[in-house]
Amino acid sequence: METPPNLFEILTEDAKDRVPVAYRAVEPIPIAGAPELRLVESRSYRARGYFCKAFYKPVSKCVAPEPD
């Protein structure tokens, strides 16, 4: 993967000396690295983006899951 642009590096030389010191340690985290969430529509008075995920245990046991 390409080296990410560093927020501090894209500041002008003048600006670099005029922002908080913490800006020198800003870390880029790739957005794609975060797992894709399964947000689904719901009745809107509850939520619009409703978080879905697999149940915490097998619901039935007919076909054993294959390891990925």
């Binding site: 915490y56 245990k57 097998p58 039935s60 046991k61 007919c62 076909v63 054993a64 899951p65 294959e66 390891p67």
Partner: peptide, 16 residues
């Protein structure tokens, strides 16, 4: 066909 017991069905989490 249901009711199998096999390590692949094991779940080690706080819920179960």
């Amino acid at each position: 066909c249901c009711g199998e017991v096999h390590p692949r069905y094991f779940v080690t989490n706080i819920g179960c």
